[in-house]
């Protein structure tokens, strides 16, 4: 028996919105520790890694490890039928071929359930090595989304260049070029407005706008985003989901031919 209950359906809606651009379907691996998902996008350029800890749920029970293959568009349809503040309970029997989502309104006057067929997905798990990154940048998630959106108008790639002075986002295309520089904040009123850079070595890497834009669909999940970079390894874009877990995106850099 698997049962996971979350007080506000909106958190799960935000998670789905954050991954359904990149993934058509995905396997949710459920264990006593929580729910995990790891999947590459269709073109195998990026990797999505989601972890929701069991202690972040209002109620969580997982008697046996289970993998639920789900179509994310179907799941989104179901979650669109819930109100943001509905309590959601995800339920499945051991070895079941369906999963049930139950939504309860706050005043309990409306209870709905949706049963969805599970899919058998070919799982390809990748081992993600521990890396000591040369640069770790923390910045407001909204600011990162804004910069990626703005620069995407001008080019197909964004060069992210991090030094101890700050981080620079650059692009160029048919109409010209664009640069956005962010300095590390020395003082800030709110922690979520801070730009903080931890640099061992300066790094400059190039990434495809298309994927960076897809990652920023996670912006509603967190105030801050963390970018981790080292030469010749994938960028990690991480959003912490408050009290529940994290969503990480890995993106292979573009390299000179």
């Amino acid at each position: 028996m698997f049962e996971a209950r979350l007080i506000n359906s909106v958190t799960f809606k935000k998670v789905l919105d954050a991954i359904k651009d990149l993934l058509n379907e995905a396997s949710f691996d459920c264990s006593e520790a929580g729910i995990q998902l790891q999947a590459m996008d269709n073109s195998h350029v990026s990797l999505v890694s989601l972890a929701l800890r069991s202690d972040g749920f209002d109620k969580y029970r997982c008697d046996r490890n289970l993998t639920m293959g789900m179509n994310l568009a179907s799941m989104s349809k179901i979650f669109r039928c819930s109100s943001n503040d509905d309590t959601v309970t995800i339920k499945a029997q051991d070895d079941a071929d369906t999963v049930t989502f139950m939504f309860e309104s706050k005043k309990q006057e409306k209870i709905s359930d949706y049963e969805m067929k599970l899919m058998n997905l070919d799982q390809e798990h990748l081992g993600i090595p521990d890396t000591d990154f040369s640069c770790v940048i923390r910045m407001p998630a909204g600011e990162f989304a804004r910069i990626v959106r703005d620069l995407s108008q001008f080019g197909e790639s964004i060069v992210i260049s991090c030094t101890k002075e700050g981080v620079k986002f650059s692009t160029s295309g048919d109409i010209g070029s664009a640069n956005v520089k962010l300095a590390q904040t020395s003082s800030f009123e709110k922690e979520e407005e801070a730009v903080i850079i931890e640099m061992q070595e300066p790094v400059t890497l190039t990434f495809a706008c298309q994927y960076l834009n897809s990652f920023t669909k996670a912006t509603p999940l967190a105030n801050q985003v963390q970018l981790s970079m080292s030469d010749n390894v994938p960028l990690v874009v991480e959003y912490q989901i408050p009290d529940l877990g994290h969503l990480r995106y890995y993106l292979a850099p573009k390299i000179e031919e």
Binding site: V45, V233, A252, K254, I255
Partner: peptide, 14 residues
């Protein structure tokens, strides 16, 4: 010119 590597170039299957 730049080329786009795949993520599996960096992370191996387990």
């Amino acid at each position: 010119r730049t080329k786009q590597n795949r993520i599996s170039h960096y992370f191996k299957k387990t």
